[in-house]
Each structure stands twice: as C-alpha cells, then as structure tokens.
Simulated assay, not measured.
Amino acid sequence: MKQRRRIYEGKAKILYEGPEPGTLVQFFKDDATAFNAKKHDVIEGKGVLNNRISEHIFTRLGALGIPTHFIKRLNMREQLIREVEIVPIEVVVRNVAAGTISKRLGLEEGTPLPRSIIEFYYKNDELDDPMVSEEHITAFGWANPQEIDDMMAMAIRINDFLSGMFVGIGIQLVDFKIEFGRLFENDTMRIVLADEISPDSCRLWDINSQEKLDKDRFRRDLGGLVEAYTEVARRLGILNENDAPRPSGPKLVK
C-alpha cells in the first residue's frame, strides 16, 4: 500500500495528501492541548469523538447552504476534505462570558452577554494567538474587507444554528472558535468553513447542571473529558452505546 504524504501536522489533526487533486485526508489525533500546547496529554478516544461530532455538524451546516471544506467521513478517525488556503484568523463567537473575555473585562463567568460578540485572533502559536481588529486584518493582508464580511456573516448563521441545535438537546452554546479557508475552483475563489467544530473548539454547558462538556475539562483538570464528549455525541444521536470509547481515566461527575 502506497504511503500517504503528510502535508501538515497541527496540535489535534494531521493532514495527508488526498486521493484526488484538490483533496486532503484530515486525521483526528487523540492529543489534547491547551494554552497553545503548553499543556499536553494524549486521551484515548478523543479523536474518534471529534471526528464524528464534527462530521455531523458540518453535514448539517452544508445542508443549510453554508459552504464547507467537508466532503465525507472515511472512517473512525479520518475525513475527506477539500484543500483550501487557510485564512490565518480564528473567528470566535461568544454568547456567554467565559474564558479570556471574563478575565479581560472582569465579567463573572456565566454572565449572558448583551448580544453575541464576534472576535478575531491572529493564528500564531509563538505569539499565543493575539486578539486583533478588522483594521489589523486588512492592514497586514490576512483577509480583505469582503472576506471579513463573508466570515462574519457565516459566523452569525453558524451561531444561530448551533445555539438552536444544542439547546434542543439540553446544552448551552457558550462560545466557539471557527476557521475559514479560500477554496479555489477554476477561476473563482470563495470563503468556506474549514477545520472542525467539536467540543475541542466549543464551550458547551449542560443547561440544567452547568456541567462542562468541552475541553475546559482538560484545561482545568476536571477529568472525564472522553465521557463528556461521549455525552455530547450521544445527545446528538450520532453514537451508539457500542461505539462509545471506554477510557480507564476519571469519570465525568454529574
């Protein structure tokens, strides 16, 4: 069997050359990282869950007409995706105060925000992904005004859909991070949703108990990360009991 060529390896995923021109294979690792990889561990089963959850969300977003890089899931850990040029900006949508916005503005975690807020962060691990403005983005050529408008419009639509989807299964969407890419087709280029959407990139709280069902369980040493991700997948209806990873680590406290 021909060995696949590795294109890129990030903190949680590996990209391989795809079977057809213009395609890549996205492999979900079990690595858990926080604070730009200053904290790192390998948690068995995490990659499988993120693959399944991200597949489900990207499929539903695609059905709504939101363009994405996703083509199909290949197996438990891999997806076939379209090759895109990643815009070096992380787009964060916040609905409830948590994480860095609580620290920056002195807001108590869990405080509902007056409205959903969109923030931009420059993708640079060495600089700890600093927060930037639209002025920075255009001045340094990371994206042009039309691309920013496209990303913001999609981010708002994605937030509306995800908020409704999660509240329907008893989960509050606190905030999430998304990335976009430039998809080149013949002589045209368009901005599409890329990367992943999973509990690694969202803050998800149980509506009744406020239990954290996301990567904050790793960031804050709460334990039970795989159990939390499994609970999200179970509520979304995409994981049978027999499919669930069975870690030997700490259990999620409910």
Rank of each mutant, 00 (worst) to 15 (best):
Q3I: 06
Q3M: 13
R4K: 05
R5T: 07
R5W: 08
Y8T: 06
K11Q: 00
I14V: 09
L15W: 11
Y16V: 13
E17T: 05
P21W: 14
T23A: 10
L24I: 12
L24Y: 09
V25K: 08
Q26M: 14
F28T: 01
D30T: 03
D30V: 11
A32F: 13
A32Q: 15
A32L: 11
T33C: 07
T33L: 06
A34V: 14
A37Y: 09
K39V: 06
K39R: 14
H40A: 01
V42G: 02
I43W: 09
I43F: 07
E44C: 12
G45C: 09
K46C: 07
K46Y: 06
L49S: 12
N50Y: 11
S54R: 05
E55A: 14
E55V: 11
R60G: 02
G62Y: 05
L64Y: 08
L64P: 08
L64S: 07
H69C: 07
H69G: 00
F70Q: 07
F70R: 07
R73S: 14
R73L: 09
R73N: 03
L74S: 13
M76Y: 12
M76W: 07
Q79L: 10
Q79C: 08
I81S: 03
R82W: 04
E83G: 02
E85W: 03
E85L: 03
V87L: 13
P88E: 01
I89F: 00
I89Q: 02
V91E: 00
V92N: 11
V93S: 08
N95H: 01
V96Y: 08
V96T: 13
A98T: 06
G99I: 05
R104P: 00
R104H: 00
L107N: 04
L113W: 00
R115E: 00
I118K: 00
E119T: 03
F120K: 02
D125Y: 02
E126D: 10
E126A: 10
P130Q: 07
V132D: 10
I137Y: 01
T138P: 05
G141T: 07
W142E: 03
A143S: 00
E147R: 03
E147I: 04
D150P: 05
M151F: 03
M154R: 02
M154W: 02
A155Q: 05
I158V: 13
N159D: 05
D160H: 05
F161R: 08
V167D: 15
V167P: 05
V167Y: 11
I169N: 05
G170Y: 15
I171P: 09
Q172C: 07
Q172G: 04
L173I: 11
L173C: 10
F180H: 08
G181Y: 12
R182N: 07
L183V: 11
N186A: 15
D187H: 13
D187G: 09
T188G: 06
M189L: 10
M189R: 10
R190M: 15
V192H: 06
L193S: 02
D195R: 10
D195C: 11
E196Q: 08
D200Y: 06
R203A: 02
L204S: 03
I207E: 01
L213E: 05
D214M: 03
D214T: 06
K215E: 01
K215G: 02
R220D: 14
G223C: 09
G223Q: 04
G224L: 14
V226I: 14
Y229W: 10
E231L: 15
R234T: 14
R234M: 11
R235I: 13
E241S: 08
A244D: 01
G249D: 14
P250S: 12
P250T: 15
K251S: 13
V253L: 15
V253H: 12
